[in-house]
Design a protein around this nucleic acid. Structure first.
Length: 597
RNA sequence: GUCCUAGUAGCUCAGUUGGAUAGAGCAACGGCCUUCUAAGCCGUGUGUCAUGGGUUCGAAUCCCUUCUAGGACGCCA
């Protein structure tokens, strides 16, 4: 299991465990590590790593800023937890960094010097700017992220949105942690459905209509095929025949196929442009057509393939899994075959440290199976493959189904969100310039954030009301907070990212509201790292809400543009730090941060 | 039938990898704009953490039982 990058191991065999030189240095603030260093000498036989792992943030500020629960040390030291805490308190050497320490019911609590805490955090944020929170954990390492991967000739609906936004967020997070992310859109551009589509098009389709209406028309044809095939099963045979022709390079079949792909991509790109998503590779299923034979030969050579009822499969009984079908009895390949082939291709091409697949949880078994096949082929990098599953989206209880037409088109959803945003702007900020641009950024942001605000694995029941709610824990709330901070800075005449941080008197930021903000700012780096380890973008989304809440509280309680220049400067530095951190976080999860909304 | 995942406030969800009184948002009600963006802030309250057991100094968290929901389970992806 992946762990936080606080443990030093001898080999660093698991990615993310290693730490850069920069991180070990005391110049970069890491209070858990720092406290562990202070305490290590005081506890005989307890390693620094053990202590650092135990240190936690107390649930509320009255208990301090950092805490060491002494219960686990109790056995080893053969002392009561409270006694250990008392001892640490007695031995504590006073210094500038810490205001006081305390021993409470088995916890050793540390209260940081609030002024110094504020000063260090703000200095760090302003110094790093748009790199604040970033790390170099993955320097020189590639991460391949397979995401979005829609099917050609099928509408891009809210089901695809999840893979797209989760994948994109992970892409950004890995980049931010120093990795080189490779985004792969594994297009569903091959398979028997193209036989069906060709048949349907030839029977009922019109070129002009397909050109005018794009995927919608292709999908209508596809649905019609299934309706008709219920009563005319011979259509299925025709479809199979056309797919065989396509596989054999038949000119007419290939021309139609290319056309369907082209039309579909055009529409996908409209969505990707709106969402701000790009890919490094569009190598879809068809890309592997000529590469699977070699893999099948390899499987045969390694005696992994077994024939059963005319099909070829890899037995996985020993691993408590059903067999992985590799070749159909008609000789056709299957998605196992393609995924295995693609993984090997990607390993050879990108030499990845990790390859992750962002798909719905329903495919979990499929991934388990072919990951095992890779392992059985003798590839020790099988453990670098990871499925990132997410829950299903349903519509008021009913399952989404392309065939039944029970879908919400992403295009429609985004359009509605943008329209609603536009109305709100018209009402609240009618004199603003770039209303359309801002409406797009906020409307789209609301939809993305909504999809990223829960744990991936949770099923989502789609609700228009919730998706278009812009209050509370939402994207617009965070963006609004950012714009609010921008507005104050604008009025104050602060320009650029770096006002003179050194000049501030941090004693003026020791009140509860300011400290609440400082604490959140400090947590950013840790949260992003955690989001990477758990492959969970929602950690960043929720963090942003926490930061925004703490800032809004501060904003409400502490007037910023006051006459007292020292107070004004100190508070402005804090506002600037919040602005930077909000923007960095929003960018990570794929949201823009307009300066006015 | 086998396996996987989930079950926390009326609703949607967090819960720092086993720690201190289980927290937010929404919805409801009440307050706050002559002052920096009210998409905001403050206040009012609700929990057999599905269930029964076990491990532990300590469990929403780990193990087992049962229940409920969803999903997967050889020629679709």
């Amino acid at each position: 299991m992946l762990r936080q990058g606080v443990l030093l191991t001898s080999e660093g065999s698991t990615w993310g465990l290693e730490r850069s030189q920069d991180e070990r240095g005391s110049s970069v603030m890491n209070y858990k590590q720092w406290l562990a260093e202070q305490l290590a000498g005081q506890l005989e036989g307890v390693t620094l790593e053990t202590i650092e792992e135990l240190i936690e943030y107390p649930p509320n500020p009255q208990m301090g800023d950092l805490s060491l629960p002494c219960f686990k040390l109790s056995k080893q030291l053969r002392k009561a937890p409270q006694a250990i805490a008392e001892e640490l308190k007695a031995k504590w050497v006073a210094g500038d960094s810490v205001q006081r320490v305390d021993a409470v019911s088995g916890y050793f609590n540390v209260f940081l010097n609030p002024a110094q805490f504020a000063s260090e955090v703000i200095t760090e944020v302003l110094k790093k700017g748009e790199r604040y929170g970033s790390q170099e954990l993955g320097k020189g390492k590639n991460i391949v992220i397979d995401f979005s991967s829609p099917n050609i000739a099928k509408t891009f609906h809210i089901g695809h949105l999840r893979s797209t936004v989760i994948g994109k967020a992970l892409y950004n997070i890995f980049e931010f942690m120093g990795y080189n992310s490779v985004g792969v859109n594994h297009l569903g551009d091959w398979g028997t459905q193209f036989g069906k589509l060709i048949v349907a098009y030839k029977l009922w389709g019109e070129q002009s209509k397909v050109e005018a209406e794009g995927i919608d028309e292709l999908q209508r044809l596809y649905v019609k095929f299934h309706d008709e095939a219920d009563t005319k099963p011979e259509l299925e045979d025709e479809a199979r025949a056309w797919f065989v022709k396509l596989e054999q390079g038949d000119a007419e079949a290939e021309k139609l196929w290319r056309w369907f792909v082209e039309i579909s991509l055009k529409e996908f790109h409209k969505m990707y442009d709106l969402l701000g998503v790009t890919f490094d590779s569009y190598a879809g299923e068809s890309f592997y057509n000529d590469k699977m034979a070699a893999i099948l030969d390899e499987l045969k050579a390694k005696k992994l393939l077994e024939e059963d009822e005319g099909a070829l499969l890899v037995r996985l009984d020993d691993y408590n899994m059903p067999p992985a079908l590799m070749v159909k009895k008609d000789g056709g390949t299957l998605y196992h075959t393609r995924d295995v082939t693609a993984a090997i291709y990607r390993k050879n091409t990108y030499d990845f440290e990790k390859a992750i697949y962002v798909t719905d949880a329903g495919q979990s078994l499929h991934f388990q199976q072919w990951f095992k096949v890779i392992e059985l082929m003798g590839h020790d990098w099988a453990k670098q493959l990871q499925h990132v599953p997410f829950g299903k989206v349903s519509l008021e209880g009913a399952k989404l189904s392309t065939r039944k037409g029970n879908v919400i088109h992403l295009e429609e959803l985004l359009a509605k969100a943008i329209e609603k945003t536009r109305e709100i702007i018209e009402e609240k900020n009618p004199n603003m310039e770039n209303k359309d641009e801002v409406a797009r950024k906020v409307g789209v942001g609301a939809i993305i954030f909504n999809d990223l605000s829960n744990n991936r694995i949770k099923d989502i029941v789609f609700s228009w009301d919730e998706a278009l709610n812009f209050e509370g824990e939402t994207g617009p709330y965070v963006q609004y907070t950012h714009a609010r901070a921008c507005s104050v800075l604008r009025k104050a005449g602060v320009e650029g990212d770096k006002p003179e941080a050194a000049a501030i008197d941090a004693e003026l930021l020791t009140n509860a509201e300011a400290q609440g903000v400082v604490r959140e700012l400090y947590l950013f780096k840790e949260r992003v790292e955690q989001a990477m380890h758990k492959l969970e973008p929602s950690i960043v989304s929720r963090y942003l809400v926490d930061l925004a809440q703490s800032f809004n509280r501060f904003y409400h309680e502490c007037p910023i543009l006051v006459d007292d220049q020292a107070v004004r400067a100190a508070r402005l530095a804090l506002v600037q730090s919040v602005r930077i951190t909000l923007k960095n976080g929003l960018r990570l999860i794929g949201l823009e941060a307009p300066e006015k909304i």
